[in-house]
Every structure is written in C-alpha cells, then in structure tokens.
C-alpha cells in the first residue's frame, strides 16, 4: 500500500525540544514533575468524559418540553464546561496572542467564548433528536488523547466528530479542539481570525466579534 500523504516535517528545534523532554522524563527526579504536566489523559477517562458531554447535549435536543430558544440557551450552558474555551481562544490567535494588549486579550476571550458557544449550539441544534456514539479513544501525543465519535442521523451518513482531550491542571479533562469530518475548529477559526487581523488589526477582529455578540 502506498503511504497516503507526506506529512510536513516538524521544525528541527521543536523535534529537539521533544527529544529533550523525553530525556528529562527519563531522569527519575524529573519524572514526577513531567508526568503531571505532560501525560495524556487515559483513553477510558477521556472517553467517559466525552460520553457524558454527548448525553447531556442529546438530552437537551430531545426534550420536548423545551422551546427552540430554551434549547439553544441550555446548549450554551452545557457546552461551556467540557470545552476549555479560554485555551481554545488562545490557540486560535496563536502568534497574535502575544502582540495583543492585556485589555485586548481579556475582551477577546470574553467575546470569543460567546461567539463559539453560540455557533456550536446552533450547529448542534440542526441535529434534533439524533443519536451519538463514542467509537474509540487513543493517545494523540504526549499531552492529548483523541476520542472519536459519530453523530448518527436517520437518513444521513454518520458524521464523524473527533474530540481532542487534555488534562489542563492535573484534575480536569477538557476538550481543546473538535474536528468534524476532518475540519478542525481551531484551524478554521485561526484561518478566519488571522485574515481579519491581517486586514484590520486586533481591534478590527474585536469589532467584528462585538457586532456578532450584539446580534446574538
């Protein structure tokens, strides 16, 4: 079989850094520290975290007593916990995070949280009453575990959703990216936000997000 596609090479410095980390982890003294900060969540724990989140979402979507507005409102509340939107927001900005002022950073994280939750809730809302199944979990790298799941529709092909799970402070598992049919939330938003920033600066992005927040 021909290997599917050539992957981009990791920059050497990063590779070297990883090597060093691995070495450091082998040193007994460093072991305890490195473990806590770097270990990927266990597949079982990550899987049950995703299952719990999925069931919460389904319960809302299927509740006949809730109006559409109620459902959207409840979805926003439920999604806030399992996804680390502050981290996701920083990862999306990438290098632009550094150059933003502290005030811009704070405002951005607030606006991004609302923007992301509204979008996720209204997309999920398109999937009324369909079922959700976790199909597996495996370590993605030394920090993250990838949980694969499917949303099953009655007349549509199953939709694949991968959750990237990280143990942020040694006690709480959170999702740091959702990848739907190969489309990553972080990559998509980063592409879009950086285009806006390149054109009209960080203030331009904040203005756009503020406008969305007012409409919502």
């Amino acid at each position: 079989m021909i290997s599917k596609i050539r992957q981009p090479m990791r920059p050497t410095s990063q590779l070297a850094r990883r090597r060093m980390l691995q070495l450091a982890a082998a040193v007994p003294l460093g072991l305890a520290v490195a473990r806590a900060a770097w270990a990927a969540p266990s597949p079982d724990a990550a899987q049950s975290m995703v299952e719990a989140a999925g069931q919460q979402v389904l319960a809302i979507l299927r509740d006949p007593a809730l109006s559409n507005d109620d459902k959207l409102h409840r979805l926003v509340q439920v999604l806030d916990g399992p996804i680390d939107l502050a981290l996701v927001g920083r990862l999306i900005l990438g290098r632009y995070w550094r150059t933003a002022s502290e005030a811009q950073q704070t405002e951005y994280l607030g606006l991004f949280r609302a923007y992301a939750l509204n979008n996720l809730a209204s997309r999920l809302h398109l999937y009324q009453g369909q079922s959700f199944k976790v199909t597996g979990a495996q370590a993605a790298d030394d920090k993250d575990t990838l949980v694969t799941s499917q949303i099953l529709g009655d007349r549509r092909p199953p939709l694949s959703v991968d959750w990237r799970i990280r143990d942020v402070d040694g006690s709480k598992l959170v999702a740091i990216d959702l990848v739907v049919e190969g489309v990553s939330l972080i990559i998509s938003q980063r592409a879009e936000f950086s285009t806006v920033i390149d054109r009209s600066g960080m203030d331009g992005l904040l203005a756009e997000l503020r406008q969305r927040a007012e409409k919502a």
Partner: peptide
C-alpha cells in the same frame, strides 16, 4: 480553509492529520 481541510481529510481517507504543533501553547508563549 473549509475546502482545504475537507479535501485533505478526503485524501487521507479520513485518517487524522498530523498537526500537533497547533496544540502547543508554549510555542507562542501563550
């Protein structure tokens, strides 16, 4: 970006991409 991501996923026949660097907080001093 949507077109590009869907297309790459199709080319990989749905296998997950190797894009770990975007998940590193510290490369941007985040």
């Amino acid at each position: 970006t949507l077109t590009e991501q869907l297309r790459s996923s199709e080319i990989r026949n749905g296998a997950p991409p190797d894009q770990d660097s975007i998940y590193d907080e510290d490369i941007y001093d985040l």
